[in-house]
Design a protein around this nucleic acid. Sequence first.
DNA 1: ATCGGTGCAAATTATTTGCATGAAT
DNA 2: ATTCATGCAAATAATTTGCACCGAT
Lengths: 140, 140
Amino acid sequence: MSQTSTDILREAGISPSSQRVAIAEFVLHTGSHPSADEVLVQARKRLPGISVATIYNTLNLFVEHGLLRTFSLSQNHTVYDACTDPHHHFIDDETGRIHDLPIDAVRVSHDNFDDFDIREVQVVLRGRTNPQNPPAKLAK
Amino acid sequence: MSQTSTDILREAGISPSSQRVAIAEFVLHTGSHPSADEVLVQARKRLPGISVATIYNTLNLFVEHGLLRTFSLSQNHTVYDACTDPHHHFIDDETGRIHDLPIDAVRVSHDNFDDFDIREVQVVLRGRTNPQNPPAKLAK
DNA sequence: ATCGGTGCAAATTATTTGCATGAAT
DNA sequence: ATTCATGCAAATAATTTGCACCGAT
């Protein structure tokens, strides 16, 4: 980690309270796409008393300051994605797990629409994760 | 309308109770992408006493039987989309309104992934709706 | 009378609001 | 002493569960 969470928060213009650092420590450095609930569990490992409301408010704050992006999946799951390089997503139908795909693995082109000014293109691929992978990858 | 809601429900293997018909009547025929709440309002116009739980349970039932698809937008909004022809979506940043795009207005190609078996490709474009349209379209 | 299907009240889960506390001037 | 930021309890909104009722056998 080249920069501490505290530094990242300061640079984003957020004052680094202990609660915020506890949350940042996990959510800005995980490759997973955690829900608010998962963030709560991890943050409590560092700061046991932290409240649910603070998790939500802090995650919203991070989103407003561009440190995170929300990603709204099927019904009951809003998920947070650390804003690193742009990428696309694959969602496993069975487990719901989200995998990042390199941006250039998916190409999109579209017509010009008179009525729409397009700012962002979001591609979600869905399907199954193959059990019979290249064996090397299965090694544990 | 070539087929009544009752017929559609029967064909899908759902017995057409009055509540279900009241919901189907709106949600299977609207071009909009209503939330559960909007469905509630419309269904109550036909059947004033219908409960919120019935709306949710019925919408879930329709989804299971392939009559609807859910579409999960930013945080607090799950929305239902009648399963007609495949299409993509444009979401207005300001209003949150969803517009359908013809399927062939967007082209996607992607690498073959060893690990993933892709069943569905979902493209969401986001941005602003242009106020300065071809004037004809603005006429009211 | 029993059983499966239906609808809804109540319970649960997710998220936001508003206020109490503390730090900075 | 006043102001503003912060965190959290409580309120609200969204969704699911489980049971009571009704119609068919």
